Simulated scan of single mutants.
Amino acid sequence: MLRVIPAVPTMRVDACSVAAPGQPDNEDQTLQYGDLVAVLDGATAPAGFDTGCRHGPAWYVRRLTARLTLAAATAPADPLAALLAEAVRAVRGDHDGDCDLGHPGTPSSTVCLLRRTSGHLDYLVLCDSPLIVDVAGQVGVVADDRLAATMDRLWQREPPATDTRQEADYRRAVQWQRQHTNTPDGYWVAAADPAAADRALSGTLPLTGPGRVRRAALLTDGATRAVDLFGLVDWPGLLDLLATAGPAELIRRVRAAEAGGDSSAGGDGSAGGDGHGGSDSTVSPATVPGHKRHDDATAVFCLFDGG
């Protein structure tokens, strides 16, 4: 008897990563190596706070991306958490002896990984760079919200002095965040401890059959602003925008919204008519507590054909 082996869907990838306006370095990075794709977002070092390290977040995220690529080349079948742990361990060795890797402000990065295999997708999400997936027409979000939950506990326990949060509130928030970095009662991020990789959200999704993944997006929080800060689109609308206009157009609209302009102008004409709120934005990040006016923005869109 002949057995029909279903074809493995192809994966088409479109990516864009743009530094925040006026910033010399992009602290976001993308990775595509074979069937592995990723986005990483380095944590900006707050002004006036020591990090214990002479290297900045841009250096760290670039090294981590390079080490992830090497780990994937060396052991392509290893679990994603094992690849990330090996990459973090290797970057520890890339620091020189003057760096205090036990310092709570040591350079760190979020990580979102997606890997196509013979019939499924493996994913890993660590800290606030989410994965958006279209599974059989239903859009879902794999998001690690432990950082946000940690900071919410601070503000509930010690409310800010004003609605706009003054310098004292900002410094208190940074100190609180550092106290709870890579701790069981806080949040986890790729930094100097390889054990953080095992605390990531991970799983497997089908690539064949009626319940298969059709589209996916890996995003840094500079790109998720289109949904969670400005409300330009919802998550299904974001995937539709990426499919029709691409990641560069998504980021262009975020920049327009940050500047207070019309985020729906230009493009391929799909902005205002996609039914998901692609309209003028009157929200300025400068007026929203906890948000920078601009941020590095990165989006990777994956389309799976066949299956």
Score class of each variant (00 low, 15 high):
residue 3 R to W: 08
residue 8 V to D: 13
residue 8 V to A: 15
residue 9 P to N: 10
residue 13 V to C: 08
residue 18 V to M: 12
residue 21 P to H: 00
residue 27 E to S: 10
residue 29 Q to G: 01
residue 29 Q to E: 07
residue 34 G to D: 01
residue 37 V to H: 09
residue 40 L to H: 06
residue 41 D to W: 01
residue 43 A to H: 08
residue 47 A to N: 14
residue 48 G to F: 02
residue 48 G to H: 03
residue 58 A to K: 12
residue 65 T to S: 01
residue 66 A to M: 03
residue 86 E to R: 08
residue 94 D to M: 01
residue 97 G to H: 00
residue 98 D to K: 00
residue 100 D to G: 10
residue 104 P to D: 07
residue 110 T to F: 03
residue 110 T to A: 10
residue 117 T to R: 11
residue 129 S to A: 10
residue 129 S to Y: 02
residue 130 P to N: 07
residue 135 V to R: 14
residue 135 V to A: 13
residue 138 Q to V: 06
residue 141 V to S: 10
residue 141 V to C: 12
residue 142 V to F: 09
residue 143 A to K: 15
residue 147 L to F: 14
residue 150 T to Q: 06
residue 151 M to F: 15
residue 151 M to N: 13
residue 155 W to D: 13
residue 159 P to R: 01
residue 168 A to L: 12
residue 172 R to D: 04
residue 174 V to Y: 06
residue 177 Q to D: 15
residue 178 R to E: 05
residue 183 T to P: 13
residue 184 P to N: 09
residue 184 P to L: 11
residue 184 P to D: 10
residue 185 D to E: 10
residue 186 G to T: 12
residue 186 G to P: 06
residue 187 Y to R: 13
residue 191 A to F: 03
residue 191 A to L: 05
residue 193 D to V: 00
residue 197 A to Q: 00
residue 197 A to M: 03
residue 205 L to Y: 06
residue 205 L to G: 03
residue 207 L to V: 14
residue 208 T to G: 10
residue 210 P to M: 01
residue 211 G to I: 03
residue 214 R to L: 09
residue 214 R to N: 12
residue 221 D to F: 07
residue 228 D to S: 09
residue 229 L to H: 11
residue 230 F to H: 08
residue 231 G to F: 02
residue 240 D to K: 11
residue 245 A to V: 05
residue 245 A to F: 00
residue 251 I to Q: 01
residue 252 R to P: 01
residue 257 A to F: 04
residue 259 A to N: 15
residue 261 G to E: 12
residue 274 D to R: 14
residue 278 G to F: 04
residue 278 G to P: 03
residue 279 S to E: 14
residue 280 D to T: 15
residue 282 T to D: 15
residue 282 T to I: 10
residue 284 S to F: 05
residue 287 T to M: 12
residue 290 G to K: 06
residue 295 D to C: 02
residue 295 D to I: 02
residue 295 D to N: 05
residue 296 D to Q: 05
residue 297 A to N: 06
residue 297 A to T: 11
residue 297 A to L: 05
residue 298 T to W: 02
residue 298 T to V: 02
